[in-house]
Design a protein around this nucleic acid. Structure first.
Length: 398
DNA sequence: AATGTATACAACCGCCGGCAG
DNA sequence: GCTGCCGGCGGTTGTATACAT
Protein backbone atom coordinates (compact mmCIF):
# COMPACT_ATOMS: atom_id res chain seq x y z
CA UNK A 1 0.00 0.00 0.00
CA UNK A 2 1.12 3.48 -0.59
CA UNK A 3 0.09 4.90 2.69
CA UNK A 4 3.09 3.87 4.69
CA UNK A 5 5.04 7.02 4.26
CA UNK A 6 2.42 9.35 5.52
CA UNK A 7 1.78 10.25 9.08
CA UNK A 8 -1.39 10.63 11.01
CA UNK A 9 -2.60 14.15 10.95
CA UNK A 10 -5.33 14.64 13.46
CA UNK A 11 -5.47 11.38 15.30
CA UNK A 12 -2.80 12.03 17.73
CA UNK A 13 -3.64 9.23 20.12
CA UNK A 14 -0.88 6.72 20.14
CA UNK A 15 -0.07 3.73 22.19
CA UNK A 16 2.83 1.66 23.20
CA UNK A 17 3.80 -1.13 20.90
CA UNK A 18 1.01 -3.53 20.41
CA UNK A 19 1.31 -7.20 19.68
CA UNK A 20 -0.35 -6.57 16.36
CA UNK A 21 1.56 -3.58 15.36
CA UNK A 22 4.05 -5.45 13.28
CA UNK A 23 2.11 -8.45 12.23
CA UNK A 24 1.43 -7.38 8.73
CA UNK A 25 3.87 -7.52 5.92
CA UNK A 26 2.14 -4.48 4.50
CA UNK A 27 1.70 -2.83 7.78
CA UNK A 28 3.64 0.32 7.17
CA UNK A 29 2.71 2.25 10.23
CA UNK A 30 3.51 5.72 11.22
CA UNK A 31 6.11 6.57 13.64
CA UNK A 32 5.05 9.06 16.23
CA UNK A 33 7.16 9.20 19.27
CA UNK A 34 7.51 5.74 20.72
CA UNK A 35 4.46 4.24 19.12
CA UNK A 36 3.48 2.80 15.79
CA UNK A 37 0.04 2.96 14.35
CA UNK A 38 -0.55 0.41 11.73
CA UNK A 39 -1.93 1.38 8.38
CA UNK A 40 -3.06 -0.46 5.36
CA UNK A 41 -5.36 -3.43 5.01
CA UNK A 42 -6.87 -4.91 8.11
CA UNK A 43 -6.08 -8.45 9.03
CA UNK A 44 -8.69 -10.90 10.27
CA UNK A 45 -7.01 -10.84 13.66
CA UNK A 46 -7.46 -7.11 13.87
CA UNK A 47 -11.03 -7.45 12.72
CA UNK A 48 -11.85 -9.90 15.43
CA UNK A 49 -10.27 -7.68 18.04
CA UNK A 50 -12.33 -4.75 16.90
CA UNK A 51 -15.53 -6.76 16.74
CA UNK A 52 -14.89 -8.08 20.18
CA UNK A 53 -14.26 -4.61 21.49
CA UNK A 54 -17.47 -3.22 20.05
CA UNK A 55 -19.41 -6.14 21.46
CA UNK A 56 -18.16 -5.34 24.89
CA UNK A 57 -18.07 -1.57 24.82
CA UNK A 58 -20.35 -0.56 22.04
CA UNK A 59 -19.70 1.83 19.20
CA UNK A 60 -18.07 5.14 19.74
CA UNK A 61 -15.09 6.32 21.67
CA UNK A 62 -12.94 4.93 18.93
CA UNK A 63 -9.71 6.29 20.24
CA UNK A 64 -10.20 4.12 23.30
CA UNK A 65 -10.16 0.99 21.18
CA UNK A 66 -6.48 1.19 20.83
CA UNK A 67 -6.01 1.80 24.54
CA UNK A 68 -8.24 -0.99 25.73
CA UNK A 69 -7.64 -3.63 23.11
CA UNK A 70 -4.06 -3.08 22.16
CA UNK A 71 -5.10 -2.69 18.56
CA UNK A 72 -2.51 -0.56 16.88
CA UNK A 73 -4.95 1.40 14.83
CA UNK A 74 -6.06 4.96 15.15
CA UNK A 75 -9.60 5.69 16.19
CA UNK A 76 -10.56 6.87 12.79
CA UNK A 77 -9.34 3.74 11.18
CA UNK A 78 -11.31 1.65 13.68
CA UNK A 79 -14.47 3.60 13.09
CA UNK A 80 -14.10 3.31 9.35
CA UNK A 81 -13.40 -0.40 9.51
CA UNK A 82 -16.39 -0.99 11.70
CA UNK A 83 -18.74 1.19 9.72
CA UNK A 84 -17.75 -0.06 6.33
CA UNK A 85 -17.00 -3.72 6.91
CA UNK A 86 -17.66 -5.14 10.33
CA UNK A 87 -20.92 -3.80 11.57
CA UNK A 88 -23.89 -6.10 11.23
CA UNK A 89 -26.60 -5.74 8.59
CA UNK A 90 -24.16 -4.61 5.97
CA UNK A 91 -25.32 -5.57 2.54
CA UNK A 92 -22.54 -6.96 0.43
CA UNK A 93 -22.35 -7.41 -3.27
CA UNK A 94 -23.13 -5.30 -6.27
CA UNK A 95 -25.82 -2.69 -6.23
CA UNK A 96 -29.13 -3.83 -7.59
CA UNK A 97 -30.67 -1.94 -10.45
CA UNK A 98 -33.17 -0.51 -8.02
CA UNK A 99 -30.39 0.73 -5.80
CA UNK A 100 -28.59 2.20 -8.77
CA UNK A 101 -31.68 4.05 -9.81
CA UNK A 102 -32.14 5.34 -6.30
CA UNK A 103 -28.56 6.50 -6.11
CA UNK A 104 -28.95 8.46 -9.32
CA UNK A 105 -32.12 10.05 -8.07
CA UNK A 106 -30.64 10.85 -4.71
CA UNK A 107 -27.54 12.31 -6.23
CA UNK A 108 -29.63 14.51 -8.45
CA UNK A 109 -31.32 15.82 -5.35
CA UNK A 110 -28.48 15.91 -2.88
CA UNK A 111 -25.25 16.05 -4.75
CA UNK A 112 -22.26 14.42 -3.11
CA UNK A 113 -23.92 13.87 0.22
CA UNK A 114 -22.87 10.28 0.52
CA UNK A 115 -23.80 9.82 4.12
CA UNK A 116 -27.26 11.19 3.55
CA UNK A 117 -27.65 9.00 0.53
CA UNK A 118 -26.52 5.99 2.51
CA UNK A 119 -29.31 6.65 4.94
CA UNK A 120 -31.74 5.89 2.13
CA UNK A 121 -29.98 2.67 1.24
CA UNK A 122 -30.10 0.27 4.15
CA UNK A 123 -27.02 -1.85 4.47
CA UNK A 124 -25.00 0.33 2.18
CA UNK A 125 -22.21 2.59 3.27
CA UNK A 126 -21.38 6.06 2.14
CA UNK A 127 -18.04 4.77 0.94
CA UNK A 128 -19.69 2.19 -1.27
CA UNK A 129 -22.01 4.73 -2.77
CA UNK A 130 -19.21 7.18 -3.27
CA UNK A 131 -17.07 4.59 -5.00
CA UNK A 132 -19.94 3.53 -7.17
CA UNK A 133 -20.70 7.06 -8.18
CA UNK A 134 -17.14 7.98 -8.91
CA UNK A 135 -16.75 4.93 -11.09
CA UNK A 136 -19.96 5.76 -12.84
CA UNK A 137 -18.87 9.31 -13.43
CA UNK A 138 -15.64 8.20 -14.97
CA UNK A 139 -17.40 5.74 -17.17
CA UNK A 140 -19.95 8.20 -18.41
CA UNK A 141 -17.45 10.97 -18.71
CA UNK A 142 -15.30 8.80 -20.86
CA UNK A 143 -18.27 7.93 -22.97
CA UNK A 144 -19.34 11.52 -23.25
CA UNK A 145 -22.67 10.74 -21.71
CA UNK A 146 -24.77 12.98 -19.56
CA UNK A 147 -24.64 12.31 -15.89
CA UNK A 148 -28.37 12.23 -15.46
CA UNK A 149 -31.21 11.29 -17.69
CA UNK A 150 -32.81 14.44 -19.06
CA UNK A 151 -35.98 14.13 -17.05
CA UNK A 152 -34.03 13.75 -13.87
CA UNK A 153 -31.78 16.54 -14.92
CA UNK A 154 -34.66 18.91 -15.40
CA UNK A 155 -36.29 17.90 -12.18
CA UNK A 156 -33.07 18.48 -10.38
CA UNK A 157 -32.88 22.02 -11.64
CA UNK A 158 -34.45 24.79 -9.74
CA UNK A 159 -37.57 25.90 -11.46
CA UNK A 160 -36.39 29.41 -11.92
CA UNK A 161 -32.96 28.55 -13.09
CA UNK A 162 -33.73 29.72 -16.57
CA UNK A 163 -34.15 33.28 -15.51
CA UNK A 164 -30.50 33.80 -15.46
CA UNK A 165 -29.85 34.88 -11.96
CA UNK A 166 -26.45 33.67 -10.95
CA UNK A 167 -27.77 32.95 -7.54
CA UNK A 168 -30.54 30.90 -8.91
CA UNK A 169 -28.13 29.07 -11.08
CA UNK A 170 -26.16 27.94 -8.11
CA UNK A 171 -28.64 25.21 -7.47
CA UNK A 172 -28.03 23.21 -10.56
CA UNK A 173 -24.47 24.28 -10.68
CA UNK A 174 -23.99 22.81 -7.31
CA UNK A 175 -25.43 19.53 -8.30
CA UNK A 176 -22.89 19.10 -10.98
CA UNK A 177 -19.98 21.02 -9.71
CA UNK A 178 -19.56 19.81 -6.25
CA UNK A 179 -18.37 16.47 -7.39
CA UNK A 180 -15.66 18.08 -9.38
CA UNK A 181 -16.95 16.43 -12.45
CA UNK A 182 -15.46 18.59 -15.11
CA UNK A 183 -15.14 17.39 -18.61
CA UNK A 184 -12.77 19.70 -20.37
CA UNK A 185 -13.11 18.37 -23.84
CA UNK A 186 -12.89 21.95 -24.84
CA UNK A 187 -11.37 24.80 -23.02
CA UNK A 188 -12.65 28.22 -23.66
CA UNK A 189 -10.21 31.00 -23.46
CA UNK A 190 -12.21 34.07 -24.20
CA UNK A 191 -13.82 32.49 -27.15
CA UNK A 192 -10.72 30.87 -28.48
CA UNK A 193 -11.64 27.29 -28.53
CA UNK A 194 -9.19 24.49 -28.48
CA UNK A 195 -10.46 21.22 -29.77
CA UNK A 196 -9.70 18.37 -27.54
CA UNK A 197 -9.39 15.01 -29.10
CA UNK A 198 -11.09 12.54 -26.90
CA UNK A 199 -9.90 9.00 -26.82
CA UNK A 200 -13.47 7.95 -27.00
CA UNK A 201 -14.60 7.13 -30.50
CA UNK A 202 -17.72 9.19 -30.51
CA UNK A 203 -19.07 12.59 -30.06
CA UNK A 204 -18.19 14.36 -26.96
CA UNK A 205 -19.08 17.96 -26.84
CA UNK A 206 -18.46 19.06 -23.36
CA UNK A 207 -17.20 22.42 -22.51
CA UNK A 208 -15.37 24.14 -19.81
CA UNK A 209 -14.12 27.60 -19.44
CA UNK A 210 -11.25 29.31 -17.91
CA UNK A 211 -13.54 31.46 -15.89
CA UNK A 212 -15.42 28.97 -13.90
CA UNK A 213 -18.01 27.67 -16.25
CA UNK A 214 -18.74 24.08 -15.48
CA UNK A 215 -21.42 22.99 -17.86
CA UNK A 216 -21.59 19.35 -17.19
CA UNK A 217 -25.11 19.35 -18.45
CA UNK A 218 -23.66 19.97 -21.83
CA UNK A 219 -22.19 16.56 -22.15
CA UNK A 220 -23.37 15.13 -25.37
CA UNK A 221 -23.78 11.50 -25.98
CA UNK A 222 -22.10 9.80 -28.81
CA UNK A 223 -24.20 9.50 -31.87
CA UNK A 224 -21.97 7.91 -34.36
CA UNK A 225 -22.46 4.21 -34.74
CA UNK A 226 -19.33 2.22 -34.94
CA UNK A 227 -19.87 1.39 -38.56
CA UNK A 228 -19.84 5.08 -39.28
CA UNK A 229 -16.88 5.76 -37.10
CA UNK A 230 -14.83 3.14 -38.76
CA UNK A 231 -15.62 4.07 -42.28
CA UNK A 232 -13.01 5.85 -44.27
CA UNK A 233 -15.57 7.50 -46.43
CA UNK A 234 -15.13 11.22 -46.27
CA UNK A 235 -17.96 13.59 -45.96
CA UNK A 236 -19.27 14.67 -49.32
CA UNK A 237 -17.69 17.84 -50.50
CA UNK A 238 -15.55 17.98 -47.47
CA UNK A 239 -12.42 16.81 -49.12
CA UNK A 240 -11.08 20.05 -50.30
CA UNK A 241 -13.81 20.57 -52.82
CA UNK A 242 -16.09 23.48 -53.12
CA UNK A 243 -18.74 23.48 -50.45
CA UNK A 244 -22.12 22.44 -51.54
CA UNK A 245 -24.89 24.86 -51.29
CA UNK A 246 -26.70 24.17 -48.13
CA UNK A 247 -30.05 25.12 -46.77
CA UNK A 248 -29.85 28.34 -44.85
CA UNK A 249 -29.77 28.13 -41.13
CA UNK A 250 -31.67 31.16 -40.09
CA UNK A 251 -30.84 33.09 -37.03
CA UNK A 252 -34.20 32.67 -35.45
CA UNK A 253 -33.95 28.95 -35.99
CA UNK A 254 -30.64 28.92 -34.27
CA UNK A 255 -31.99 30.92 -31.44
CA UNK A 256 -34.90 28.59 -31.04
CA UNK A 257 -32.77 25.46 -31.06
CA UNK A 258 -30.18 26.86 -28.80
CA UNK A 259 -32.78 28.09 -26.39
CA UNK A 260 -34.22 24.62 -26.16
CA UNK A 261 -30.81 23.17 -25.72
CA UNK A 262 -30.30 25.60 -22.96
CA UNK A 263 -33.49 24.57 -21.29
CA UNK A 264 -32.81 20.89 -21.71
CA UNK A 265 -29.33 20.91 -20.37
CA UNK A 266 -28.98 24.03 -18.37
CA UNK A 267 -26.59 24.94 -21.10
CA UNK A 268 -24.96 28.23 -20.60
CA UNK A 269 -23.00 29.94 -23.25
CA UNK A 270 -20.11 31.44 -21.56
CA UNK A 271 -18.74 33.99 -23.88
CA UNK A 272 -18.04 37.00 -21.82
CA UNK A 273 -14.62 38.49 -22.18
CA UNK A 274 -14.89 40.13 -18.84
CA UNK A 275 -14.82 37.40 -16.22
CA UNK A 276 -16.09 39.76 -13.61
CA UNK A 277 -19.41 40.02 -15.40
CA UNK A 278 -22.09 37.55 -14.71
CA UNK A 279 -22.89 35.01 -17.31
CA UNK A 280 -26.25 35.08 -18.94
CA UNK A 281 -27.96 31.92 -19.83
CA UNK A 282 -28.17 31.48 -23.49
CA UNK A 283 -31.48 32.24 -25.11
CA UNK A 284 -32.67 34.16 -22.14
CA UNK A 285 -33.01 37.84 -21.71
CA UNK A 286 -33.07 38.47 -25.38
CA UNK A 287 -33.57 42.17 -24.87
CA UNK A 288 -30.27 42.47 -23.19
CA UNK A 289 -27.45 44.05 -25.07
CA UNK A 290 -25.56 40.94 -24.28
CA UNK A 291 -27.88 38.93 -26.40
CA UNK A 292 -27.89 41.09 -29.44
CA UNK A 293 -27.93 39.39 -32.78
CA UNK A 294 -24.25 39.31 -33.41
CA UNK A 295 -23.34 37.98 -30.07
CA UNK A 296 -26.17 35.54 -30.22
CA UNK A 297 -24.82 34.29 -33.44
CA UNK A 298 -21.36 34.08 -31.99
CA UNK A 299 -22.71 31.99 -29.20
CA UNK A 300 -24.30 29.58 -31.55
CA UNK A 301 -21.17 29.29 -33.59
CA UNK A 302 -19.29 28.65 -30.45
CA UNK A 303 -21.76 26.08 -29.32
CA UNK A 304 -21.92 24.13 -32.50
CA UNK A 305 -18.19 24.01 -32.64
CA UNK A 306 -18.26 22.00 -29.52
CA UNK A 307 -20.09 19.27 -31.29
CA UNK A 308 -17.46 17.12 -32.76
CA UNK A 309 -17.62 13.83 -34.44
CA UNK A 310 -15.20 11.20 -35.40
CA UNK A 311 -16.80 11.20 -38.80
CA UNK A 312 -15.17 14.51 -39.27
CA UNK A 313 -11.49 14.74 -38.95
CA UNK A 314 -10.32 17.28 -36.44
CA UNK A 315 -8.86 19.19 -39.31
CA UNK A 316 -12.37 20.24 -40.15
CA UNK A 317 -12.48 22.24 -37.00
CA UNK A 318 -11.46 25.60 -38.16
CA UNK A 319 -11.94 29.02 -36.89
CA UNK A 320 -15.58 29.78 -37.09
CA UNK A 321 -15.08 33.48 -37.12
CA UNK A 322 -13.48 33.28 -40.52
CA UNK A 323 -16.17 30.96 -41.70
CA UNK A 324 -19.06 33.02 -40.58
CA UNK A 325 -21.38 33.93 -43.34
CA UNK A 326 -22.16 37.60 -43.23
CA UNK A 327 -25.76 36.81 -44.05
CA UNK A 328 -26.17 35.16 -40.74
CA UNK A 329 -26.12 31.71 -42.19
CA UNK A 330 -23.97 29.02 -40.85
CA UNK A 331 -21.48 27.86 -43.37
CA UNK A 332 -22.26 24.26 -43.99
CA UNK A 333 -18.92 23.64 -45.53
CA UNK A 334 -17.50 23.16 -42.11
CA UNK A 335 -18.50 20.63 -39.53
CA UNK A 336 -18.61 23.35 -36.99
CA UNK A 337 -22.05 23.94 -38.31
CA UNK A 338 -23.16 20.51 -37.34
CA UNK A 339 -25.65 20.70 -34.57
CA UNK A 340 -25.68 17.08 -33.72
CA UNK A 341 -28.06 14.80 -35.45
CA UNK A 342 -30.26 17.67 -36.48
CA UNK A 343 -27.63 18.85 -38.82
CA UNK A 344 -27.23 15.41 -40.29
CA UNK A 345 -30.92 15.05 -40.80
CA UNK A 346 -31.23 18.43 -42.41
CA UNK A 347 -28.40 17.74 -44.74
CA UNK A 348 -29.51 14.27 -45.56
CA UNK A 349 -32.88 15.50 -46.69
CA UNK A 350 -31.30 18.35 -48.47
CA UNK A 351 -28.87 16.10 -50.23
CA UNK A 352 -31.73 13.96 -51.30
CA UNK A 353 -33.45 16.96 -52.76
CA UNK A 354 -30.29 17.95 -54.50
CA UNK A 355 -29.71 14.50 -55.86
CA UNK A 356 -26.62 14.19 -53.78
CA UNK A 357 -27.08 11.06 -51.73
CA UNK A 358 -25.22 10.73 -48.50
CA UNK A 359 -22.21 8.57 -48.27
CA UNK A 360 -22.17 5.31 -46.45
CA UNK A 361 -21.19 7.09 -43.34
CA UNK A 362 -24.10 9.44 -43.44
CA UNK A 363 -26.36 6.67 -44.52
CA UNK A 364 -25.32 4.75 -41.50
CA UNK A 365 -25.92 7.77 -39.39
CA UNK A 366 -29.43 8.03 -40.63
CA UNK A 367 -30.24 4.39 -40.86
CA UNK A 368 -31.30 1.66 -38.55
CA UNK A 369 -27.77 1.09 -37.48
CA UNK A 370 -28.03 4.11 -35.35
CA UNK A 371 -30.88 2.64 -33.42
CA UNK A 372 -29.31 -0.74 -33.23
CA UNK A 373 -26.06 0.47 -31.89
CA UNK A 374 -27.24 3.25 -29.71
CA UNK A 375 -27.88 1.08 -26.72
CA UNK A 376 -24.43 -0.35 -26.64
CA UNK A 377 -22.90 3.01 -27.27
CA UNK A 378 -24.83 4.45 -24.45
CA UNK A 379 -23.28 2.04 -22.09
CA UNK A 380 -24.56 0.69 -18.82
CA UNK A 381 -26.81 -2.18 -19.49
CA UNK A 382 -27.87 -2.10 -15.90
CA UNK A 383 -29.10 1.40 -16.24
CA UNK A 384 -32.78 1.65 -16.84
CA UNK A 385 -32.38 4.74 -18.97
CA UNK A 386 -29.65 3.51 -21.21
CA UNK A 387 -31.88 3.75 -24.22
CA UNK A 388 -32.02 7.46 -23.89
CA UNK A 389 -31.34 8.92 -27.29
CA UNK A 390 -28.07 10.59 -27.75
CA UNK A 391 -27.51 14.28 -27.70
CA UNK A 392 -29.99 15.65 -25.36
CA UNK A 393 -32.96 14.19 -27.06
CA UNK A 394 -32.45 16.26 -30.09
CA UNK A 395 -36.08 15.83 -30.94
CA UNK A 396 -36.74 18.37 -28.25
CA UNK A 397 -34.89 20.86 -30.29
CA UNK A 398 -37.11 20.49 -33.27
C1' DA B 1 2.16 -14.46 -23.02
C1' DA B 2 2.91 -9.71 -22.21
C1' DT B 3 1.21 -5.33 -21.73
C1' DG B 4 -2.13 -1.76 -21.13
C1' DT B 5 -6.51 -0.19 -19.40
C1' DA B 6 -10.75 -0.06 -16.79
C1' DT B 7 -13.01 -1.12 -12.72
C1' DA B 8 -13.94 -2.23 -7.93
C1' DC B 9 -12.64 -1.79 -3.57
C1' DA B 10 -10.28 -0.37 0.65
C1' DA B 11 -8.18 2.88 3.26
C1' DC B 12 -6.11 7.33 4.33
C1' DC B 13 -6.21 12.42 4.60
C1' DG B 14 -7.82 16.94 5.60
C1' DC B 15 -11.49 19.63 6.99
C1' DC B 16 -15.28 20.74 9.74
C1' DG B 17 -18.82 20.82 13.36
C1' DG B 18 -20.41 19.49 17.89
C1' DC B 19 -19.35 19.33 22.51
C1' DA B 20 -17.24 19.58 26.96
C1' DG B 21 -14.09 21.85 29.97
C1' DG C 1 -15.49 33.06 23.89
C1' DC C 2 -11.56 29.87 23.47
C1' DT C 3 -9.45 25.49 23.05
C1' DG C 4 -8.90 20.70 22.38
C1' DC C 5 -10.95 16.29 21.50
C1' DC C 6 -13.77 13.37 18.93
C1' DG C 7 -16.29 11.74 15.22
C1' DG C 8 -18.37 12.43 10.66
C1' DC C 9 -17.88 13.52 5.98
C1' DG C 10 -16.16 14.02 1.36
C1' DG C 11 -12.07 13.79 -1.55
C1' DT C 12 -8.39 11.25 -3.00
C1' DT C 13 -5.16 7.60 -3.67
C1' DG C 14 -3.33 2.91 -3.87
C1' DT C 15 -3.94 -1.90 -4.91
C1' DA C 16 -5.94 -5.98 -6.87
C1' DT C 17 -8.39 -7.94 -10.42
C1' DA C 18 -10.64 -8.47 -14.83
C1' DC C 19 -10.60 -7.56 -19.37
C1' DA C 20 -8.86 -6.00 -23.87
C1' DT C 21 -5.23 -5.53 -27.19
Amino acid sequence: MGHSTTTESDDGVLSADSPLSNDGENSGGSSNGNALLKKGPWTTAEDSILVDYVKRHGEGNWNAVQKHSGLSRCGKSCRLRWANHLRPNLKKGAFTSEEERLIIELHAKMGNKWARMAAHLPGRTDNEIKNYWNTRIKRRQRAGLPLYPPDLCLHALPENQHHGSPGIYEGCHDIMQINGYETPDFMFDNFNISPYTSEFPGISATVSTSNGFAPQFCTFGPQIPKCAQETDAPMPDYEGGAPIEAPPFHKNQIESYASKMSQSFGLYFPYEPDPTKKMFPFGVDKDSHFMNDNILFNHVCSAVRRVKSEVFDQSWIIDSESKRNPNNYLDYSTPEASLGSYWVEQNASYWKQQGCPPTDAIGALMGEDTKNTSASIWGLSSCCWNNMPAVCQMSDIH
